[in-house]
């Protein structure tokens, strides 16, 4: 039975790199194109996950555990962000009955 890092290493690092970059870019594009706050937030999560994928791959290729540990940190932080983020969105929904970010532009100029 292969160790997980070894399995990961069966795919060339470039692929991970391209994949996670693409995933990251999809996240970015999602953030740019969507108007719903929740979906935007999801896209941000997508970006974080792209990072996680890459981090895991790199850690495996390096044979270094710190990278993988960092993934857990990121997940924890992402979870915290989700809590706060959703709370904020809910709060806004309560006030304006919508999660459309374009409705929010009182603060400008």
């Amino acid at each position: 039975m292969n160790q997980i890092p070894e399995i990961i290493r069966t795919v060339p690092l470039e692929y991970y790199l391209f994949f996670s970059t693409a995933l990251f870019a999809i996240g970015v594009i999602g953030v740019l194109t969507r108007r719903n706050a929740i979906i935007i937030f999801m896209c941000v999560e997508l970006m974080l996950n792209a990072v996680n994928v890459l981090l895991t791959a790199l850690a495996s290729y390096r044979g270094d555990a710190t990278g993988q540990v960092f993934v857990f940190f990121i997940m924890a932080v992402a979870a915290a962000e989700v809590c706060v983020g959703l709370a904020i969105i809910v709060m806004i929904y309560r006030n304006i009955r919508s999660t459309d970010v374009q409705l929010l532009n009182r603060l400008k100029w």
């Binding site: 709060m91 006030n95 970010v101």
Partner: peptide, 9 residues
């Protein structure tokens, strides 16, 4: 609210 959302996103 708006500030929080902008900051957060």
């Amino acid at each position: 609210n708006e500030a929080a959302l902008k900051y957060f996103l």
